[in-house]
């Protein structure tokens, strides 16, 4: 007999919201994925899937370049 799967909903917040690519202008959501120092959360900590973690990484770096997010605080 196979075990029942309890966790059917995705752990990744962007998969759940149905967002394909993360937008670098969406600072409020990106700020939730950084520490108070401005560092990126790990994939383990953020719970993102590989695709969205890549996307978050790129968009946070774009936001930093445009001074929307800090490099270091």
């Amino acid at each position: 007999m196979t075990k029942k799967r309890f966790n059917k909903t995705s752990k990744c917040r962007f998969c759940r919201m149905g967002i394909d690519e993360v937008d670098y202008k969406d600072i409020q959501n990106l700020q939730k994925l950084t520490t108070t120092q401005g560092k990126l959360f790990s994939r383990k900590r953020s719970g993102n899937c590989a695709h969205h973690q890549h996307s978050v990484k790129a968009s946070i770096k774009r936001a930093r370049f445009m001074a929307l997010l800090p490099y270091v605080t």
Binding site: R64, A67, L68, L69, P70, Y71
Partner: peptide, 10 residues
């Protein structure tokens, strides 16, 4: 977007 405070000095 309007005037905003920058995250760091440029």
């Amino acid at each position: 977007w309007g005037e905003k405070k920058l995250a760091y000095k440029i």
